[in-house]
Each structure stands twice: as C-alpha cells, then as structure tokens.
Design a protein around this nucleic acid. Structure first.
Lengths: 200, 200, 200, 200
DNA sequence: TATGAATGAGTGTTCATTCAT
DNA sequence: TATGAATGAACACTCATTCAT
C-alpha cells in the first residue's frame, strides 16, 4: 500500500495503530463506493471490524475522518510526484514520469486514487488554500520547461490545469468502465496528448 | 433561461407548471450550492415558496427530482450541442462552436452548468447507459473530421474524453475561483489546446 | 390547569396547539419524575403520544423545551403572585395571600410546582438575570411593609430569601413524603413562622 | 480538609488510598460544577489524574461513586454537628454553634457543602431512609429546648425544617452570587431569624 | 495495580415522506 | 391542488463500563 505512511512504530502503540489502519482503509472504501455523505459511520465501523464508538478514538468526527483521509493521502501522493518531478531529462520526460505515477497509484490503490479525485468536489471546494496539489507539481515542471524553451509560453497554471483535466477525466471513465483500452495504451495516448498541448 | 424546456402549454396546467418551474429552479440552486445529499426537501420547498409535501406532486422522491433535473437539463444541452455540431465549416470550427455553447451556458445559467458537471459523480456513475452526452457529440465531430483527414487517427471516444476533460476542469476551477483569467481568454486557450490535441 | 396560559385561539392552529399542550404536560411530568438530564426525548414523546421527531416542531431542542417550560410557568406563577401582592390589608395579609397561592399551585398542579422549584438548580444557576422571581414579589411586599413600620428593618431581599427558603423546604419535603401534617396545618405554621421572622 | 475522614492507615494500602482520595476530590468537584448526570467518568478520571478504567477499582459504578460521596460526607458533617449540639449553653447557643459549623464548611470546603445540599434533589429523593441528617440534629436541639421551655411548642421536625430551609436557601444564593452581604453578616441575620422562628 | 483501547446500547436530532384537512 | 403537522427510521455521536495487557 503506497500511501499508508504511518507504519507501526513501537509496541504500546501497535494495537491502536493497527485499528486505525483498518479504519482508514474501510472508511476510504466506503467513501469511494457510496459517497462521503451517504456512507454511514455504522457501515464504516462494520467494515473496519470495530465498534462504532471506537471510530471517535481516532477521529473527532466523520467529517474529520473524511478530511484527514483526503489531506494525508493527497500530501503523500504529491510528495511522490515531487520526487518524480526532480528526475533527469527534460519537461517531457518529467511529465511522463508523473503520468507513470498516476497510473501506478490507480493500479495499486484505486480507492485512494478515486478518493483524491472525487473528494475535491465535496472537500476541496470548501477548505483548501495553501495545500500542494498535483496541479502545482505539473505547473512547476512546465514553468521550468518554459525557461528552457521546451514548453510553449502562457500561464503554467492554466496549462497544468488542462493536463490534469485530461488525466482525471480519462482515469475516472476508465475506472467506471466507460472507457475501453488497456492502461498502457491509455497512458501512451495521454502522454502524447499532454505533450501536444504544452510543446514549445 | 436556456434549458427550461417545459413551457406552459395550456391554461389548466398553467398554475401547476409555474410551480414546477419554481421548484426545479430552487432545487437546482440548492443541489449545486449544498450538494445533492446535503440539500433538504425543506430547504428546497422553502426556496420554491411551496409546502414541503407539495414537492411530491411533481416528483416521486428527492432522488427522482435530482435525476430528472440531471436528465432533462443534460438532454436539452446536448440537443443544443448537436445543433451546433451541424454548423458549416470543418472540425475546428465545429469544436469552437461547441466551446462557445459551453461558455454561454456557464455564463447564462451557471447552476445548470455546475449541476450537469457535478451530478456526474453522484448520479452518472450509477445510472447512465444509452444517454447522449456532450462527449458523444464531440466524438461525432471528431469521427467525421477523421474521415476528412482534418483530425488525427485514433479512438474518437478517447480524443473526445480528453477534450471534455480539459473543458470541465478549466470551467470547474474557474467557477470556484481557483483559476485566474477572463472567460474569453480562457475560451481561446481552450480552443487552441483542443485543436493541438486532435489536429491531424 | 392554572398555568396553561395558551388556550386554543382559532381553528387552523388548533391541532398543533393541542399537541403542544400534550407535549408540555408530558415533558413537565417526565422532567419532574426523572430529572431533566435523565428524561429522554423518547420517553417524553411517548408520554405525549406523539412521534419523537415531532417534538422538534414545537421546541428546537430538549434544552429549549426544559427552559421554555421553566420560564413560562415561572412567569405565569409570578404574575399570579403579583396580583395577590396587590390585595388590601397590611404586609401580613399579603404574605398570607402569597402563601395561599403557593399552596394552591402545589395542590392543583404539583408537577409545575416541583418543576419551578427543582429546575432552579440546573437551569436558574446558568441563565437568569432580570427574570422576576417569587422572591422579588415577597421582597416588594416587605419593602412596602418596612415603610409603614409593619416589617422590621434590614435587607428586604435577604428577608424574602429567608421566607422563600422556609416555604420551599417545607413543600419539598411535604411532596416527597418526608414531612407529616396536613396542608392546612403546614400553611398555618409557615404563616406564623414567616411573620415572626419579619415582624417589625 | 474537614471531611476527608479516611486517612491512610498502613503502608500497603497507602498508594491506593491516595488515589482514592484524589478520585473523590475530583469527582466531588466535577459533580458540583457540572451536575451529577452531566459529569462524565472521563472528566472525573482526568481530573483525578488516573485512567478511566481505574475508577472502577474504587467504586462499582458512577452512581455508586456519587452516592458514596454523598453518604460519607453527609455523615461526617452530621457527626460534627452532633458534637456541636452537645456544647454547653441553651438551645440558642447550640443553634448558633450549628450555624457556625455550616459557615465553616461552606468556607473551607465549598464543594462538599454544595454537594451535600444539591445532591438531595437527585439522590436523597431516591435513596434515604434512616440516615441521620442535619435536620435531625437541629430537631434534637429544639426538642430538648422545648422541655426546658426555651423553644416554643410544636413539631420539632417542622421547626427544624424551617430553619434548615432558611440556611440552605441563603447559602445557596450566596454561593451562586445572587445574594449580597458578607458571610459574617449573613450568619448573624440567620441566627436572629432562626431564633425568632423557634423562641418560646 | 493501572492503563486506555474497545464496546455497544442509547442519546438528541434530522429529514424524506405521508396524510388529514 | 396545496398545506404543514405528523411520522419513524436513521443518523452522528457519547459514555459508562469492560478487559487484554
């Protein structure tokens, strides 16, 4: 599991930590499958094999749980993207590295992927400011590419938004079965399209 | 109001139709501002200046209301897009006509625009099949363009998805204030990017 | 029922008003018998023969219900006391009129009596300020009596507190069965004791 | 601390006894400040600097804790009152000694004072029988005074109730800040009023 | 002995829906 | 047709109590 940052640390915390991990995975799953509002604490607790009340030992409210899940997983993912963004090669290679990271998350932890993308509509709109997003990482790569003349001029933020829009839309439809084609083929197509949009 | 398809037809229905119109607008507004789940029938009825129970004379349930709103407005919008898609000129001109239509809806009826886009996450995933979507219209234009050699080869559905992804993402962030730039400038940028992605 | 001020006014309000009256009586009964905290909304609703949710059509919360009950009933009782306090005769006669009013409430509406007295410990301590209390009425009589030389000098508030303390304690123990003696005899003893405390 | 009767007796019990003492003081404080029902075992345990579960090594339930606190502290206080009641002098002197004891408890251990008085409404009504109360001590003094002709005839229980009613009411309002005047002045007034009520 | 994670019944409250008027 | 009082199942959350460590 890529984004389960908190590994067990020491014995006395162990029991609680394991329960928290179960809880986070169960909540993530419920939120993605039923929507944050529609998922009930009862369902989540049952899926995590714990009593309902115990949920509140780990998170102060359902909203807190939903937000913490979003914030932590997004931050972990963005951290990975930033690492990728520092790879050798030009802007094109870096963008492709990012795309690879998106695909890997989608394959290895689809719940986290879907949650990060979907939660934006109910959470991001109400609470962000100053949080690092995947779009920021893309924009950073593009801005650097513009200096070297690899990337066409224009607002790096807007270009990044265009790329992220394509990526999100394609992966979302892929997940819901509305789009045919293998993951590798889609990734190749996405890479090509992204470069067409931003090539200098 | 562009997408209020059902105008009053004859006298005896008139009053009920007016009430239904008020109800639809109020519900749309509430759903967009608060989310479908969070919006209550009480709020909606109050905004529509009618008693709560009266809502059920027009729709059999809140879910039915949400779905009918989505289906009708999406169908009306798609009908307009299809009209635009039959305009003279090549694929590029047609795509730009579609983009203009998107922008016009966004400006003239932002609630409807937002609802169509946002409702997908809670409604489309659970209920589509055989409905005509904006992506279908775009794909149609692209397929025809491919025949004429204006548009590059590849899955027209995938290409259309890429374009729609860019449009939705940009307009969504524009609506929530996360993206700077005037509407006209954004439309120009979008048009350029779209064409770069699909140009033959 | 002495303190049910709100009588039915007009037809359209009738149904709701009757339900509200049932609710108030049931809540009063539950609060007195079980204590405000221990009484559950479920119990109250059942005793009022209505669904639990309907309670919130009349009061915004259980706390609001408890407070409204206290405030309204206390105000109604104080209004009666103030009327009594304007009777002819000297301070002694007026104090005896008040005592009679206490006894009448205790006999005719013991729930209201007990609630007014008991709620002070959980409600009065947290919310009063500027509310008229029985003690104020007594103090008013004493202050006037002091001007005429019927009542001994000293803080009228303190003297009133002493009298009210005796009355409350005696009636409380009487209600719980810890004190023997008929109501009439107790009233006579109380009247005598009160006068001895304040006589000039 | 006047009423902490149980001092540590021997070494092996010592540590547990200290914890129990902390627990009792913390519980008393919480019960008085928040009310018995509203105070949570979590709060109490935290205030006593012990784990929540450990509370159950000392008391079998929260109710048991509340009751034990009431019973023990009341008994200790009554024992002191009985000692005072055996002092030399007539009924008046003895009553004044009792009043002094009330005042001393109020000043030196206001939590205990408030708890004894307040707990009656939630505990005494449900559980007394055969417990010695302050009223009993007062009644004893009055009965003896009646034999000597110092105290007027009548039910000693009723007279004692009247006195206790005055004392409780005055001190309660004093504690909640609803009554002005210094403690010494109030005690003098109380003493005067008590004697007026019972003087032969 | 002491801890605090875990439990689960129960709380006050909400809300989509029904129905008498 | 329209109203809004009434319903009751469900909800998020609390908390006294238990128990493995």
């Amino acid at each position: 599991m890529i984004l389960d940052a908190k590994t067990a640390e020491n014995a006395p915390v162990r029991r609680g930590a394991a329960a928290r991990l179960r809880l986070e995975k169960a909540a993530l799953r419920c939120f993605v499958r039923r929507g944050i509002d529609a998922a009930t604490t009862k369902e989540i607790a049952k899926a995590a094999r714990m009593a309902e009340g115990n949920l509140y030992r780990h998170f102060s409210s359902k909203e807190d749980l939903a937000w913490a899940l979003y914030k932590d997983r997004l931050a972990s993912f963005v951290a990975l993207l930033e690492e990728d963004a520092r790879c050798d090669g030009g802007a094109r290679a870096r963008l492709e590295a990012l795309l690879g990271r998106f695909r890997r998350l989608l394959e290895e932890d689809p719940d986290t992927y879907a949650y990060i993308v979907l939660a934006q509509h109910s959470l991001l709109n109400r609470t962000p400011k100053g949080m690092h997003t995947p779009t920021d990482v893309v924009a950073g790569i593009l801005a650097e590419g513009q200096k070297k003349g690899e990337v066409r001029a224009g607002s790096a933020d807007l270009l990044a938004t265009l790329l992220v829009g394509m990526v999100i839309r394609v992966t979302l439809l892929k997940m819901s079965g509305h789009l045919e084609g293998g993951a590798a083929a889609l990734e190749r197509e996405l890479a090509g399209a992204c470069w067409r949009v931003v090539a200098g």
